[in-house]
Design a protein around this nucleic acid. Structure first.
Lengths: 350, 350
DNA sequence: CTGAAAGCGCTTACAG
DNA sequence: CTGAAAGCGCTTACAG
């Protein structure tokens, strides 16, 4: 397990990094010639190219992107920012990876950061990214007011919204079809005979949570099912709160026979609550957003799946299109969801 | 769902970003005075501070970190790189978030990138990060040779390894105790009476995979259990391969009665294979590394849990200590694992 | 094809 | 307390 090298003192000598000037001196050419070789301009004499490359390699020269960006006319930093709610949430992580893949292909690096659903951190983090002069921003916003970003757009920094739309700002946006997906979930439950379908939802300030609730309620209306406020629980922020909400509903005189959960963690909370009550084969359940191992639970959990990889690909391609100078109006892309039947959603009304 | 603003043409005007010079001109002071105010040097006249801040705010001035770093004597970019195998793997994601949290507190941003277990991408990505002049690097290496990083260390860039140790390089390192954790897992299975305990492992080139196998084998030796090569499957790279390996073992004349899996995805594969064979309540299972919902499966999956959050905290604190100039020898921190009994590992030999 | 001078947006080192 | 000059590591714009 242990390498002999470890435990020995680290070298105290720090040799400063070589600059282009050092390379020029060693190769016996001018600064500008080194610059040409490093940037692969074709107009340089082959012999000089060789001399410069040898010197660069001997000094282990690494060009300074930042210094180069500062002087270049495009002033591009080759960095983009990806700001998400929580990188450790699988939905966010998949979007991040998807964008990272495109960025890498385009020669860009990604500055990533998480809001943890704290709206006040949003402008602060965006500010930090702007001070680092990122060339573009992909953001799943935590706040409800984005006018402050207009000045960044006008400074030429494209901004693409994912998962949630911009408020008071014209910007490209890629989202799942929350409304249609929720409607499909509720109709699927109704098709199994259920008439008392409960709803569990995230913070109502979040636009997607509003949309999912609207899909739920409009489906009930369309199907002429009763809308019982006792079966609707919104603003659930923790797994514990969601579990308690389900337990309370199950204890009602007229309990729900089916549940639609508007989010990942709420779905898992519902599974736990149904298990605790011993009702998991009895009360139907459909969740919005898929999660790992949903198929291995018993019963398997039926979900309306989002496609975070696709959302990321579209967002990244919009961003890089803007970076290439495309000017058109702000685009709004809606990515459809997919019902995945696994058992819990197919439990019929007994 | 739709904001009226969307669909309208974006503003075509791009007003360039204000510089410190612009702020100085508007405030009627010198460049240097603006610099003093922006950097909160206390020696500035209160009235001037006000004038400068008003001008900065009117122009929506955002200082340019890169330009400032270029000239400052410390030449710090306030960026660190976090290079992991795959940010969408929960283990990596937790480490990332943990480091991000410390970095943010220290006023640093994080450049994140994933290797996807491709060793050749490692030096390439590190090179990119160096060209961006990150101040430090946290890396879960994909390669088996890190001498190339010595020049970066000597240029003053601290490098901290996580999850896997450096090879041919002296550097700080934070890892789980793979050997002890694996040994504990196997002994736990043996304590339930099992004598034919199988092993499933990741690529043998990965040091942690080697350590976990060593822990497994040494436990067998210590307990005087037979070492049957037919019960050892290494170099498993996909869930499918792992499922097939388990299926093949179960079909042996002398099948295993218990399984130890050396990694996350292999554990899930084993669960699937046991389910398919209808043996999940029959063959015991302990996995290395915990995963979400392991407790909700039936039987619950017993694991040797790592503590990625803690690994990240330690790695980040080592890194920032080095950035503050601490010189001591390279440190190797071992984070202990924790056996979590949930059912699958407590199935006794029948 | 090659190079000397100027300058990107800032901070340093120095005067006043 | 305030500012004019020089320079960080590069590229631009121009000469030769």
């Amino acid at each position: 397990m242990s390498t002999e090298l470890n435990g020995m003192p680290s070298p105290l000598t720090t040799s400063p990094r070589a600059t282009m000037k050092d390379v020029a001196a060693l190769a016996g050419v001018s600064l500008k010639t080194v610059s040409r070789v490093i940037n692969e301009e074709s107009t340089v004499n082959a012999e000089m190219v060789e001399r410069v490359l040898a010197a660069a390699s001997e000094l282990r020269y690494q060009p300074n992107f930042g210094a180069s960006a500062l002087r270049r006319s495009d002033r591009r930093s080759s960095q983009i920012a990806v700001l998400l709610e929580d990188l450790s949430n699988p939905f966010s992580a998949a979007i991040y990876r998807s964008i990272e893949e495109v960025a890498m292909r385009e020669g860009f690096t990604v500055l990533g950061a998480s809001f943890d659903e704290d709206p006040s951190r949003e402008p602060a983090l965006v500010g930090t990214m702007i001070r680092h002069r990122v060339d573009g921003i992909v953001i799943a916003p935590a706040s409800q007011e984005h006018a402050y970003l207009e000045v960044e757009q006008q400074a030429g920094t494209p901004i693409v919204f994912v998962d949630r739309p911009p408020v008071n700002l014209r910007a490209d946006c890629v989202m799942s079809d929350s409304y249609a997906g929720s409607m499909e979930a509720v109709k699927h439950l109704a098709a199994q005979g259920h008439r008392r379908i409960a709803y569990l939802g995230d913070l109502s300030t979040i636009v997607t949570a509003q949309e999912r609730f609207r899909g739920y309620r409009d489906a009930l209306k369309e199907l002429s099912l009763e809308q019982d406020p006792a079966l609707m629980s919104k603003n659930l922020r923790t797994v514990e709160a969601a579990e308690a909400a389900v337990a309370a509903m199950l204890a009602l005189d007229a309990p729900p026979t089916a549940i639609f959960t508007g989010q990942n963690l709420l779905t898992i909370a519902a599974v736990r609550a149904l298990r605790t009550a011993g009702r998991e084969y009895d009360v139907a359940l459909v969740g919005f957003d898929d999660f790992l191992l949903a198929d291995l639970l018993r019963p398997g959990v039926t979900v309306v799946a989002q496609d975070p990889w696709r959302i990321g690909q579209i967002a990244a391609s919009l961003l890089f299109r803007r970076l290439r100078g495309e000017q058109g109006p702000a685009e709004r892309m809606i990515v459809s969801t997919e019902l995945r039947e696994r058992g819990s959603g197919e439990i019929a009304l007994s």
